[in-house]
Each structure stands twice: as C-alpha cells, then as structure tokens.
Computed example of a mutant assay.
Amino acid sequence: MTVIAGEKPALIWALRLSVVLLVGLWLFPTLGLLVSSFRTSDQIATSGWWRAMFPSEQNLTLRTDPPSAQVQEGDLYVIEGRLFAEGTSSEISAWGTSARDPAAYEPGISAELRRGGTLMVAADGAYRLESTEEISGKRGPRVFVTATVPPEFTLENYETVLVSGNATDNMAKAFFNTLTVTIPATIIPILVAAFAAYALAWMEFPGRALLVAAIVGLLVVPLQLALIPLLKFHNEIGIGKGYIGVWMAHTGFGLPLAIYLLRNYMVGIPRDIIENARVDGATDFMIFVRIILPLSFPALASFAIFQFLWTWNDLLVAMVFLIDATGETTVMTKQIVELLGTRGGNWEILATSAFVSIAVPLAVFFAMQKYLVRGLLAGSIK
C-alpha cells in the first residue's frame, strides 16, 4: 500500500475503523426497524430482531374451535382440530388450561376442564376435546402453550399503519400531510435564498457586508427564541393554524443557512464567466437563470438535502405552527408520538411507523448524496 509522505499507516487504519464503526452504529438501528416491521408482536416480545431468521420459543394463548363445531360420537360430544394454522410447523413442549400454570401438562396428556370434559393436546397442536354433556358457550376454552415457533414475516403491520380505518393507527394521511409540509418548505427557501445569495455575491450595493455579517449571526440564534414571537405574529395576520404558517416558519428558520451556503458557492464561480456574459449583453436576471443556477446545482442540492431532512423529521415547529384539533393536518412525527401514548406495547406497530417515517428521507439522501460534499465544501477552496 502506498503511503503519502507524512502520514502514518496506523492513523489511516484508525480512520478507516472509525468510519466503519460510525456506519455500523447508524446502520444497525435502521436494519432493526426494518426487520421488526415485518415481525409479529409475539416474536418481537420473545427474541431480538437479529434472531428473526431462527425459531423462537413463545408462550401463546390459543383457543379451540367453538362449541358449534362439536360432533357426537356415541355418548360423547367431541371437538377436534388444530391450535395452529395449516402448514405451521410449530412444536408444543408444554401446555396448560390456566394462566397460573401454563406448563402444567406435557403434550399427549389429557387434562380435566373446569366446565367438565377432558382436553388432550399433541405436540403438533392437534387437540381433542371430549365431554359427556353437550358443550355450550360461544367460544372454545383457552389453551396456554409453550411452543417453538418458526420465523414468521407478515405485511399486516403495514396494512394496519397505512390503510387502517382507525385514525390513531392511520399513518397514510399523516404521510401525505408531511409531504404537504416538507416539499413547499424545501422549495420556497431555496428560491428566496438563491436570489439573495446572487445579490450578495455579485451585485454591488451599500451595506452588503453588513447583511452578510447579519446572516452569519443568525446562524447561531436558537430556534426556540423565535417560536413564541413568530407564532403571535402569525396569529395576528391569520396564518397561525395552517400550512401557510408552517411553510413560512420553516422558510424563515432555513434561510440563513441557505443564503450563507449558496453565497459562498457563488462567490467561487470565476468572475470571467460573469463579465463575459455582461459584455454579451446579458442582464443580471439572465446571468442568474442561465449561468449561476446551473453552476450552483451542487450547493442547491446540498441545502435541499438538509432542509428536507430537517423539515421531514421536525416535531417542534409542526406542533407550534400547525395547530389542528381534528387531526386533519397531523404530520408523521406527531402521529408516532400519539402511537407511543396509545399503543406503547405494540412494538410491531411502532417499528413499522418509524420505518415508514424514515424511508423517504433515506431515499432522498441516497439519491442526492453525491452533491452533499461538493456543496458543503463550497467556497473553502479556490
């Protein structure tokens, strides 16, 4: 391996290992969410996502067929069937008729039921319920089993999250609400910042240096300081409870970084290109549209990535500026918070909702990541 003069091989390997470690720390939780989103609640409760491809031992509560399925064999009323679905290769190691002692019997042993009759459960889940009297009731008795269950993957979690009729579980509407907030809140600041950055980079006017200094100063102003004053202003002009208000809020909070990033990139464009265009009779608007914007695409894409990710994952601004008691404009981050409160035990629903939420930002990042470094390095070298 060729080593650059002045660099130590140990330092290079340390750098590479650090990168691999950081990638692993970022990748494993995402992979865990993806795997968990296809698993059932019982599997998530009994084993980690890294064991999703292996059989797991689970404590299940099942029921026999209802009394309507009974048949008469001589003096006996009999219900026969299987506790597991057809084609399932689960194996029972113990079973019981009471939650206090779910492993009271071994497979193949008959047990007396409290309501009369006997029940026998085999290792493969086949059972036989016998009674000398007609079995009554609407549902069959419960059976508590300890079984080795093969790995199982399902799309029911995504059906519940995306197409459920329950407003609490329905993430589809929240998904489109988030797109409604994110796309304009990404495009608007880019359009405004591009014009401002061109003016600060190539147009001479009094106070330009002070404006650049003010923009740099706004980069360090905490977002939380402006929330209440801006909300009061939005309420006074009537845009404090809808999409327009949250669009304007995201635009205002994103403009300092956008202008700073684009201005640094545009300053690095060779002056000869601008001067030659002016000699040919091009106006400032023509130069901006036909020369500056195409050459500034890496910086535009870099800011678009940051603004899209920040807006998509935002909760604070949405809760402050997108006030809605009916849930018609609820975004995905707020929807997931509500799921945590109402379905905190349903980890499969939470995992699916979280992965649906991060799928779009991941797609945007991977599609535009080649422009990220070029945009971040704008203006750092000549």
Rank of each mutant, 00 (worst) to 15 (best):
A354T: 11
V145K: 02
L162C: 02
S68Y: 08
F355T: 06
I109H: 10
T251S: 05
A172N: 03
A14M: 09
A351M: 07
F253I: 08
E338H: 03
M203Q: 13
Q335K: 08
S36I: 11
N235V: 06
P107G: 13
W310A: 14
R278W: 04
S353R: 01
T160V: 05
A367K: 14
F38H: 09
D169V: 04
T2C: 15
L255E: 02
K173G: 07
A185Y: 02
M368Q: 10
V364P: 01
L231W: 04
G207H: 07
A304Y: 01
G24M: 04
L309K: 06
A304D: 01
L11E: 10
L162T: 03
V337G: 11
G254D: 06
R39D: 07
I12W: 09
T118E: 12
L300M: 15
L362C: 12
F366I: 06
G252M: 03
G240P: 02
E156S: 05
P256N: 13
Q58I: 05
S302G: 09
L227S: 00
W50M: 06
T168N: 00
Q335E: 12
P222V: 08
L76D: 08
L231P: 05
K334I: 12
D65F: 03
A174V: 10
V212Q: 07
F233M: 11
G245I: 01
A5V: 05
P29W: 04
V149W: 00
S164H: 00
A99C: 03
L293E: 10
L15R: 12
I12A: 02
T40D: 07
I273S: 08
W202P: 11
A214I: 06
I358H: 10
R263K: 05
L261W: 01
E134I: 03
A123V: 14
T146D: 03
Y198M: 05
S164Q: 00
I92T: 12
G252F: 09
Q369D: 13
T168G: 02
L22W: 10
V20D: 12
Q72G: 08
L129M: 11
D284S: 10
V289I: 08
I291H: 05
K241S: 13
L34Y: 02
P298E: 10
I215N: 02
D42R: 10
T97N: 11
L322S: 01
T311P: 03
